[in-house]
Design a protein around this nucleic acid. Structure first.
Lengths: 145, 145
DNA sequence: TTTTATGCAAAGTATTTGCACGGGA
DNA sequence: TCCCGTGCAAATACTTTGCATAAAA
């Protein structure tokens, strides 16, 4: 089963209805390798379903985030961008030029150790962590050269 | 020399003028241990300088960020918040309840190694990285208990 | 048939810009 | 004095809400 169908099923099993607008938003997000903001999604999805409203995009992204199917991506220039989430904790590698995103399994041991050390030192109860790398993807490096 | 004066001097040596509004914004930011958004800064700084305009806060924060005296903090709930920057690369530990921030020197070797591995694997040219931990500070843990 | 979801329009926030005046150097 | 910086007001951008209609189950 592909990602789109999985997401649709997840929506449905959480009591949400499957509709044409939701389908195109989900297809857009599920297939994208790039960070997309709500307007990006709107523009892309409208190519297949022109009646789509921007409000519906906002509302659908909200639900997908709530179901952990997508995650917010924070970038130096702003944070209202999203990318599909993977199950399990994943770290991000983001191309600052084109928005392409790769996921990588962090060196979880090393990071867990680090977090442990920091917790002890600071007294904080650490609940979440983010590791994001920014750089240029292969393609963008080639274009610049 | 304290942080406020250092920042003022930095502004000046970069061709910017020192004014009363800038002074209070800088004092507010330089002294805060908490993540502050532009409106927070406005409210706090206005206690000492009531004529201050919100627009000036935006413009001053912009300059401080440009001079790397403050840095943007990205949180699950939004990103338009700032905290004083330290020299050298620092990682953040943020209290999700009160906004208090601690800096820590990452295990730079471990992270550098990780970044190196990821670069080789992905082909990306990594230029920047963020590591942010979220949790509860000592005080907020006590309040909840 | 019943209830949820949609899209429009409007409202609400957040941020930026234009401009005449005021204050730093 | 000269020019940069300020604050107000307005413009713009972004996001959310109200509501009548349309569509899913």
């Amino acid at each position: 089963m592909n990602k789109t169908d999985e997401w649709l099923e997840c929506l449905q099993s959480n009591g949400y209805r499957i509709t044409a607008p939701r389908r195109v938003v989900i297809e857009t997000m599920a297939q994208s390798q790039h960070v997309l903001n709500p307007f990006d999604v709107y523009e892309q999805a409208r190519q297949r379903y022109p009646r789509l409203g921007l409000v519906t995009v906002y509302r659908t992204l909200e639900k997908l985030e709530e179901l952990h199917l997508i995650q917010r991506v924070h970038q130096p220039g702003g944070c209202q961008a999203f990318i599909g989430a993977f199950s399990g904790h994943q770290h991000l590698l983001i191309c600052v030029k084109c928005g392409r995103v790769e996921f990588f399994e962090g060196d979880e041991n090393g990071i867990a150790e680090l977090i442990d050390t920091i917790s002890k030192k600071s007294g904080y109860k650490v609940k979440e962590h983010w590791l994001q790398l920014f750089g240029l993807c292969n393609q963008c490096q080639a274009e610049i050269a």
